[in-house]
Design a protein around this nucleic acid. Structure first.
Length: 475
RNA sequence: GGCCUGAUGGCGGAGUGGUGACGCAACGGACUGCAAAUCCGUGAACCCGGGUUCGAUUCCCGGUCAGGCCUCCA
């Protein structure tokens, strides 16, 4: 029953205890919306969506508040907007919409809040003011900088020795910085860039302060869980923590820091600066969202994940198997008398195992294993023609899989996705003709029709109650 | 250079101080007019070298290799 999560701060798996079980809070750093997001951007989306679902089950749907922000003011956005000759909101609105559509296709529930930097400007400016008042920040040449020396624990989250941070700094230090580690809270805008008024002059916020302010505004500090990719541990989360604490919100900023591992393309880290991107937007044209979700969750979230075609094929095959039992059990139930009386508890242990695995720091591979055991249980019940056991274990499989965001499609639709109405009608006609040929034991004709269907990328499967079909390969 | 992860069968990937998950793929058999699915079954792994132990893939040390962070990338 108890949920254990690996906390980056303490580098240990800890039992999760929310500050207030009636108001569990989680924040995850979201995208900068200047382009379509690649599949690597969606790893944290899917991972923390799963955690969101697990938390909702544990504490109740209304008791978990999840904020995932959007950075909608940024150099890359500015450049894109300038290239297109449009206001930045045109760019950000367009890609935010695409991002949310992709996330939904991957089975991610909408977060409770989706704060945007441009809509948090007052809180950002107020928080910078707090930092300046607390002597944790100073203005210099139109900039406002965070004074890292004000935060004694700076470097604790990422485990970096402070001296090394200075010695290892490879970037030229801006002359107005008192300390090389100091980072920007507010900076002047260049001509033509979006600009906001502030007590330190017109300009725009630094990246780190946006998140801290958005958390404070949407959830209130401190929060229970802060998530994001490992690459954000330093400097982004280190800086967030420093800002949150020094702005006067107390020592606790986030009680649990969770970080997902990186997704690699062809043995190289995927990033937009390299050419090896796979946009979720494009992948979704060829694969059902659940396949991508399954692939993203096929390894433990803290591990690195190599994104390959083979990974997707395996994910598809695994899901096919689950959908097959679902389909077969539905057909059995449709033809069987309704089960009477209490349902036998077939599969209860396996069902519990799914949650147990998830509660162990989101051990999705173990949860998948339990899902397959549940599927085996269901298969056995179908073979035994035990309607009560089928109904019971089918419900449990569906519940466990749904909790993880899987098996949300109708099995029939799953196997026939990619077929339009026109194709469906043709297939049905061909199958009817083939059934007639089979009834007449005209095997050559039956096989000829099967070949014709195969040419349409359709596979027929003869069953005791007629034939079923499915699309063989995704487009 | 500093800090941090990881190294498991053909592939993906959990886990465990002692009888080696799970999935994908492969192979044999059953079923099927054929096929698919399904069922039964088979083969197949714990990077290297030390150490601790009755016993290590699992703990400790060293090495090698791979990846990440140290630069406003999830």
């Amino acid at each position: 029953m108890s949920l254990k999560l690996y906390d980056t701060m303490t580098r240990a798996k800890r039992e999760f205890v929310p500050a207030d079980p009636d108001r569990v809070t989680m924040y995850v750093c979201g995208p900068t919306v200047y382009n379509y997001a690649h599949i690597g951007n969606f790893r944290p989306v899917v991972v923390f969506d799963l955690l969101f679902r697990v938390l909702r089950r544990l504490y109740g749907e209304g008791h978990v508040l999840y904020a995932a922000n959007v950075t909608d003011v940024d150099d890359k956005i500015n450049r894109k907007a300038a290239d297109e000759g449009v206001p930045i909101s045109v760019v950000t609105d367009r890609y935010l919409e695409a991002y949310n559509a992709d996330a939904a296709a991957l089975g991610a529930l909408p977060p409770t809040f989706q704060p945007r930097a441009t809509q948090t400007m007052d809180a950002i400016i107020a928080m910078i003011g707090d930092l300046v008042r607390n002597n944790a920040a100073y203005a210099a040449e139109g900039h406002v900088l965070f004074a890292t020396e004000a935060f004694a624990d700076y470097g604790k989250l990422s485990g970096k020795p402070l001296d090394d941070l200075i010695a290892g700094a490879r970037v030229d230090v801006a002359p107005y910085k008192k300390d090389p580690r100091d980072f920007v809270l507010w900076k002047p805008s260049k001509p033509g860039e979006p600009v906001w008024e502030s007590p330190w002059g017109p300009g725009r916020p630094g990246w780190h302060i946006e998140c801290t302010a958005m958390i404070a505004q949407s959830l209130g500090l401190p929060i229970d869980i802060h998530g994001g990719g490992v690459d954000l541990v330093f400097p982004h989360h280190e800086n967030e923590l420093a800002q949150g604490v020094c702005s006067g919100h107390g020592r606790d900023y986030a009680h649990y820091w969770l970080h997902n591992g990186f997704l690699n393309m062809a043995d190289e880290k995927m990033s937009k600066s390299l050419g090896n991107v796979a946009l979720a937007h494009d992948l979704l044209k060829s694969w059902p969202g659940e396949v991508l979700r399954w692939a993203l969750l096929s390894g433990h979230y803290r591990q690195g994940l190599d994104w390959t075609d083979s990974l997707l094929d395996q994910a598809k095959s695994a899901l096919d198997r689950l959908y097959r039992v679902l389909d077969d059990s539905a057909r059995f139930l449709a033809g069987a008398p309704a089960p009477d009386g209490a349902q036998s508890p077939a599969g209860a242990a396996e069902h519990a195992e799914v949650e147990r695995a998830l509660h162990d720091d989101l051990n999705t591979p173990a949860a998948f294993a339990a899902l397959f055991q549940l599927a085996d249980k269901l298969r056995a019940a179908v073979m035994a023609r035990d309607a009560r056991a089928v109904a019971s274990s089918r419900g449990l499989l569906l519940d466990a899989a749904n909790l993880m965001g899987f098996l949300t499609a109708d099995p029939q639709a799953w196997f026939q996705s990619g077929a339009d109405d026109d194709l469906k009608a043709r297939v049905e006609d061909l199958i009817a003709a083939r059934q007639a040929a089979r009834a007449a034991k005209d095997w050559p004709e039956a096989d000829r029709i099967r070949a014709e269907l195969a040419a349409l990328n359709v596979e027929v499967m003869d069953g005791p109650n007629g034939a079923t079909w499915r699309v063989k390969e995704q487009a």
